[in-house]
Amino acid sequence: MKESRFERLSCLAVCAGAGGLALGLEEAGFDPVLLLDNRAVACETLRLNRPQWNVLETDLLDFDPADHQATYDVDLLAAGLPRVKASAAVARENSTEEIRILDATIMLMHGVQPRALLIENVPDLVSKPAYEPIRARVTAELEHLGYRHHWFVLNAMDHGVPQDRKQGILVAFKGDCPDGFVPPAPDTDPSITVGEALGASMAARGWPSAAAWAAQADKVAPTLVGGSWNRGGADLGPTGSKRSWARMRVNGGTVADELPGPDFPWDPSLGTKGMVALTVDQAARLQGFPEDWSFAGRKTARYRQVGHASPPPVGRSLGLAIRAALARP
């Protein structure tokens, strides 16, 4: 764990998943008083990496902050919520699970009364007209509670993550807190490429083509997609993503059990069968997780956690921007 020079602030993390957002916020000086998730394997991952964290396996819809006094008046309520789908946004009845969880997070503000709120979701939630009824409902409730809010979109590739991953962000501040929030600015350094991020790991077992592969993998990764928890195996995303991976000579239709060894037959002329596949740990590096962060469960469950996570470096950037706003006189 990195040492922080900051005064430590408090955080309640809901829908915490594998801890990507909470880890980034920790680096920005926010310590969680409680983390919630409804998946046992995600809670196991959190406890595995941070035994000192207070982790509660429960559905957000069943959570009552009155039973957890430490959550009241925290500095930040943070939520990396399940992805709100476009079809849900235009549905006549907003009863999908994703929207119910978004609504539950906003209603949680009544009982928690945090100084600030951070919600991370799909960029369309911020930018597309089809989502305007959802934004309007959220805005009305926040204003009713006395919070000022900001909607914006950022891309993880602009914050040290080797992945083209746009994220929709909602940040809000209690009315008696300082104003003047400024979204985190993009890094001035060039984006990290897939080859730069994974070249060393590809060579770790003696694969002789690792350097050649890394040299041609000279772009950022497409958005990693965790996929459904209810069906299918692990792969790197939909058809468009698989085509992007194929251009970097990566088989995006599967996730490897191990890194390529000295005898791996890399021959892209054979199609995906002759391409290298990424491991779960390599996918985690493309999300910006540190090398010592472990994921519980079997391969598919581990990959699902990685793909659904919010990249920790983005969480750190957002955390620093939020605490800077909270510290203004």
Rank of each mutant, 00 (worst) to 15 (best):
A327M: 10
D292E: 15
D187P: 09
G111E: 00
N38C: 13
A70H: 09
A234N: 04
Y303D: 06
D31G: 11
I134P: 02
A78D: 00
S10N: 03
Q287A: 11
A221V: 07
G24I: 01
L23P: 04
L154H: 04
F63Y: 14
P190F: 09
E27L: 05
D281Q: 11
S191T: 10
G17P: 02
A172P: 01
N230M: 14
A212H: 13
G261R: 12
V314M: 12
T223Y: 00
I99N: 02
H308Q: 12
Q282E: 14
E98V: 10
E196N: 11
V194I: 12
A324P: 12
L125I: 04
T300H: 05
E93K: 12
M107E: 14
S310G: 11
A211D: 15
R243N: 12
A283H: 03
L108K: 01
V90Q: 14
G232V: 04
A197Y: 00
A136P: 13
D31H: 14
E98D: 13
P123A: 07
F63E: 06
A130P: 03
A70L: 08
S87N: 14
G288H: 01
A78Y: 00
G288T: 03
W293I: 03
H149N: 12
A211Y: 07
H110Y: 15
A256W: 07
E258M: 11
P114R: 08
D189Y: 15
D267Y: 07
A214F: 06
R100M: 06
P32C: 01
Q113H: 11
V84R: 06
K166N: 05
I192V: 13
V182S: 09
T45M: 02
V171S: 08
S191M: 13
A217V: 05
G253V: 09
V194W: 10
P184N: 08
N38S: 14
